[in-house]
């Protein structure tokens, strides 16, 4: 019974944090399912892909791959490049996900952009078990994605309501999370490095291939400037 109330408390704390993602994933997942449906796939394709890949941008690309000639090595390398940013998420979550037992496996499996942002930035309320909190954020987020992808695949182009611009909910969420981070710290060196490197690389490499050069620049700058940056970070805490 003890453990049941621990879980219920964590779920109650996790759910409100995921509401923007419910909106964003609800919309994007539907779009993804409809796209697969219109590309000629039955609904269980988007559903299963949402379940096992669980990485939005790669899933959209995978639709095209499935319709192209079979080229496994190329596809695997593409997958690695598109998903490389997750390496950063792992490094940032090493501490928070430490010692969480079997839950940790699922937490790492489900570490997408949105789940990372919530679990990395949210303050777990007092008296709530952090492991279960992270677990429910991850589980809720993936459920939204899988269910809406399956729904989109079932409904196909029956959906006609005007949702143009709804995907901005994800941008707005990242803006708010960035702002919260900026309000929390005294010096903004690393945000400036991340933003500056992204803008510069976007300009140089274009929207489809700027993430990896950005990551290299960020790593390089953080390494070179470790001396001045390290003392400005709050010791021990990831945020």
């Amino acid at each position: 019974m003890e453990s049941l109330s621990v879980r219920r408390k964590a779920l109650a704390a996790a759910f409100p944090q995921t509401i923007p993602i419910l909106t964003g994933f609800g919309f994007l997942g539907l779009t993804y399912g409809v796209y697969m449906n219109l590309s000629g796939f039955p609904f269980w394709y988007p559903m299963l892909m949402a379940l096992v890949i669980f990485g939005g941008s790669l899933e959209f690309v995978a639709v095209e791959l499935l319709l192209s000639p079979f080229a496994p090595v190329t596809y695997f390398c593409m997958g690695l490049m598109i998903q490389a940013r997750h390496l950063f998420y792992g490094i940032a979550m090493l501490d928070k996900y430490k010692g969480l037992g079997w839950k940790k496996l699922y937490l790492i499996f489900g570490l997408c952009d949105e789940t990372f942002s919530i679990n990395c930035s949210a303050t777990v309320p007092q008296g709530v078990d952090a492991g279960w909190f992270y677990f429910f954020v991850t589980l809720l987020d993936q459920s939204y994605w899988v269910i809406s992808a399956a729904l989109g695949g079932l409904l196909g182009n029956l959906l006609t309501f005007n949702t143009q611009g709804l995907d901005f909910v994800m941008t707005a969420m990242f803006v708010v999370i960035l702002l919260e981070q900026l309000l929390k710290e005294d010096r903004h060196y690393t945000a400036l490095i991340g933003g500056g490197a992204s803008l510069l690389c976007l300009l140089l490499f274009g929207p489809d291939s700027f993430l990896i050069p950005t990551m290299v620049c960020v790593l390089g700058l953080l390494t070179l400037l470790r001396g001045p940056i390290e003392p400005t970070l709050k010791g021990g805490e990831t945020a």
Partner: peptide, 25 residues
Amino acid sequence: RYVAYLGSALPAAIFAMLVVYCLRN
């Protein structure tokens, strides 16, 4: 220690990167 340093320095950089990523097009 270097990896731990990256772990605490990265989040702000990543959040800024994700905002740019959303606006890339």
